[in-house]
Amino acid sequence: MNQDLDTRADAYVLGLLDETALADLEQALADDTAWRAAVTRARDRLLPLDMTAAVVPGAARLWDGIAAQLGRQDAAPAPNIPPSLPPQTPQPANLQTAPRRWLQLGLVASVALCIGTVFGGNWFTAEPVVIAVLMDDKGAATAIVEDFGSENARIRFVNAVSVPAGRQMQVWTLPSAEMGPVSLGLLQTASTEGLHPPALPRPIAGQLYEITLEPEGGSPTGRPTGVILAKGLAALQTGT
């Protein structure tokens, strides 16, 4: 048994190796039998320490979030060129001499334009981590929040709202009870708007989002102070 290998495997399993070495060592697990065996031995040796952790109830409710990510992963990744693009694009009679690839580029461009219209420039490649449908106190859908994590979110109104003079809508989320409500931004109008939240933990299933009516310029306290216009809980969309 190679002692250096075992020493390095121990350090690897304890999470003590330099980050720059990690990627190579992870990769080597696939094809370096001796390294793989050393890491396996180290993990098995220290496993009793994992078994001293408490069994914490409530794990089963994580399933929906996990399953949502599996479904997305199994689905075909969003291609750059739509797979439905017909290989034999019908050509108008007056364009018979046009090179086919120009036609195809045209199609791709128009599809890209559609996606751009739907998602807006910033959202071209992004998929929201969570979506929350915000409802008023009568249960009517008012707005939809898509939170992309990474300090990006978007709100889209699906119903009319009335904002009294001197008030302004402010969007909030509750990343956790400890953290308390955090502002995602002030809204000028009830239209589709990009939001620029601060750096927050990755949104999770069931996270609360809401819109309140605040004094113009936003809540004076940094926490929601006004009437809640609409609120809703997030549904997880993706694992990335």
Binding site: D50, M51, A53, P57, A59, I66
Partner: peptide, 12 residues
């Protein structure tokens, strides 16, 4: 795996 080990995983 979640049902059998999820509780311990949360603990870890």
């Amino acid at each position: 795996i979640l049902d059998q080990e999820g509780g311990r995983m949360l603990g870890i």
